[in-house]
Computed example of a mutant assay.
Amino acid sequence: MAINYEHVMSLTSKDQEFSYGDRETMLYALGIGLGADPMDKTELAFVYENGLKTIPTMATVIAWGAGRVGDTGINYAMVVHGEQRLTMHKPLPSAATILADSRFVDCLDKGAGKGAVLISETTIRDKKDGSPLCTLTSSIFARADGGFGGPSEGGPALHAIPDRAPDLEVDIPTSPDQALIYRLSGDRNPLHADPDFAKMVGFPRPILHGLCTYGLTCRAVLQAYCDMDPTRIQSHDVRFSAPVFPGETVSVQLWRDGDVVSFEARVKSRDAVVIRNGKTVLAG
Rank of each mutant, 00 (worst) to 15 (best):
V238Y: 00
P243M: 02
D129F: 02
L118D: 05
F245A: 06
I207N: 03
L118P: 12
I233E: 02
P166K: 01
R188C: 01
L208K: 04
Q178G: 12
Y225T: 04
T231E: 13
D194Y: 03
G149E: 05
L118C: 09
A160C: 09
A242M: 01
D194I: 03
R232H: 08
Q234N: 13
V117W: 01
F240S: 04
D237Y: 00
A165S: 15
Y214S: 08
Y225P: 04
L118T: 10
P132C: 03
S139F: 04
E248F: 01
Y214Q: 04
E248C: 05
L216G: 06
G149V: 13
S241M: 05
P132T: 02
P173I: 07
E121R: 15
P166W: 04
L180C: 05
V244D: 01
S185W: 01
G154Q: 03
P173K: 04
K199A: 05
V117F: 08
M228S: 13
D187P: 12
G115L: 01
L222I: 08
S138K: 14
H192Q: 07
D163L: 10
P132H: 01
V221A: 04
G149N: 12
M200L: 12
S120G: 15
D177S: 15
A224G: 11
P230G: 00
L136F: 10
G155Q: 03
V201L: 10
